[in-house]
Structures are given as structure tokens and as C-alpha cells.
Design a protein around this nucleic acid. Sequence first.
DNA 1: GTTTATGCAAAACCTTTGCATTTTG
DNA 2: CAAAATGCAAAGGTTTTGCATAAAC
Lengths: 164, 164
Amino acid sequence: MTIDQKVIEQRIEHFKQVCLNARVKLTRQRLDIFREVARSGDHPDAETVWKSVRKQAPNLSLDTVYRTLWLLNDLGLIKTLGSHHERTRFDANLSRHHHFICTSCGLTKDFYSETFNNLPVPDDLSSVGAVETLQVEAHGICSKCSALNRQHKQKPSVKEDYHE
Amino acid sequence: MTIDQKVIEQRIEHFKQVCLNARVKLTRQRLDIFREVARSGDHPDAETVWKSVRKQAPNLSLDTVYRTLWLLNDLGLIKTLGSHHERTRFDANLSRHHHFICTSCGLTKDFYSETFNNLPVPDDLSSVGAVETLQVEAHGICSKCSALNRQHKQKPSVKEDYHE
DNA sequence: GTTTATGCAAAACCTTTGCATTTTG
DNA sequence: CAAAATGCAAAGGTTTTGCATAAAC
């Protein structure tokens, strides 16, 4: 999935501005790496970014990718996601959004919902901490995986339903 | 945080039943490891489980803990959580629940909400996949961290607010 | 008694770090 | 030109694996 060209350009402008403000040097590598995350809609991990950028800049090193991604994260230009058992992945979408997560393949897709943006914060959370934002995770099986499952005539998994 | 004794016993009974059904051998180590996750309310990682159980069973090895936790996960007896930059953590709470996550220290606390249990699934997700469950993540600063911040008179972080 | 799980040690994996060299502002 | 970033190689921390021994059914 690819992001609209206009949005990419906006993101890159913003990136340059933030670097300037923060007195962070604008190197070729940083621009390449940020552009790659900004234009990819599917939350790539460090190695994926590295492989993509290396097509144009073959001597980019993987550790620079890591260093840069964490720098961008510290600057608030990208966010991290991805759970256990998979590598850390990065997202340049700073708009308020929610995630669909495929429990089979791990696909994580952004989606937007005004309803979910305006959920009430439960009262009893105030003792736990101060909630800043609520994000909804929709867990399920993505279209691709359910197509595959149908082909292979897989039996549904046999987890018991149990609740305390 | 510790779980109520009755709930722990229910969880252990269920665990034994599932092992029997799945023809998975019920070993001392597996029981110890499951009990530890079942009675801990704070989603321990593998090493934490290992250290706790080793107090009673000193020659338990860490790799058995890993193997067992993933087995329990495959059997649907526990779930994984935890994000990038921290170890995988495990949760024996199979009831429908949501998470408060502290953006400062990573504390993850279960909470319950009937409202959140009954959120409508957005229509436009149907093209992405079949949603099975919606879970809300409340991100914020936990009470402990905000107390610490006040003590240290920390300046608030200076991320710009930017939206596409 | 057969099958399966454990413990040990070693490997694999992803990510980070130290340092000399190069590049940026 | 001073300060900071890169690439290289080596180390770090967590998790996994192969194999002989031990335990469960």
C-alpha cells in the first residue's frame, strides 16, 4: 500500500522543518529513510526500510537505519508499533487513527472513525492514571488470510471458549 | 497485583482440562509456570516468571519457561502482550478486557467496560477483514509516573502538534 | 515401555555501541 | 572549522534449538 503523493510531500516538508528546529542535521540518509517510511502504508520494520533504500543508496548501513528511526521517533516524526515475536515497525501516520490487526498474519492496517475518536474515558481509570488518548484495536482475520484458509479447507482452530 | 484465590483455582482447573484434552503431559514445571502467570496480575515476562518459580523449584531452566509459555499460548490458555523495546509478556486473563498503557513506564493494566465491549464495528472495515473483537487501548501517564514527574519538576515534552 | 518434556549448552536473532572517517551547517 | 553523523565490526540482550537424560502416561 502506498500513500498519496501530496501527503508524502507534506510529511517530508514537516520533517525538514522539525530537523531545522531541533538543530538535527539533514543528511541524505535521514531523508531517504524518512521518505521510505512516509510513503509506505504498511508499517515497515528497520530491515525492510534498509532493503528498500539500499536500491538507490547501496552503502547505507543497517545500524544507521536503526539510529535514524529512533531519532525520528524521538522527534515525534514517526511512531512505533508491532507486538511480541515480530520486529519493531514504524509508522509516519501522525493523524488520529485506529488499527485493524490480523491475528493470522499480523497485517496492521490504519483506519479512521469519528465514533472511536470520541469515546468517553471510563471514570474508574482516573485512579490508574491520566488518559491522554484512546485507540481501538480491531482484531480479526484479514481478507487475504480468510481466502487462503478457504482454499486449504483448514479446520477452524479448536480453542475452547472459556470465561471466568 | 495479585489475583483472587478462587479465580486462580478456576484457571488451574481449566488448564488441567485443556492439557488432558490436548494430550499434553501435565508436568510439575508446566503447572508451576502456569500458576505463576495465573496468579500474577501484572503480565510478567519469561524471565520474571522464571525467577519467581525458581524460588520453589531451583533447577527450572529458562528455556523450559519459554517453551512452556508458547505452548500455553498455542493452547489458548494465555495471551501475549507487550510492544517493541520490551520483552514479550504473558497474561492469563481470558475475560473480555481492555488495557491502560502508561506511555512513560510501560505499565499495562487490565480494565473492564461494558460500553467498550459493545462498540459497533465500522462498516468500512469489512473490505479489510472480518473483525472478531474490538479492544480499546487507553494511553496515558500512570499515577506513579505523574507523581515522579511532579517531584522532578520536569518540563513537559515539546512535541509539536501536527496533523495532515 | 513408549512417547514426550526437561536441562544444558550453544546458536540464532535482532538491535545497539565504540571508534575512526566523513559530512553537515 | 567545529560538531555531529556515518559505516564498519564487534558486542549485547533476548529467545530458540539440538541432543542426551529424565519423567509422564
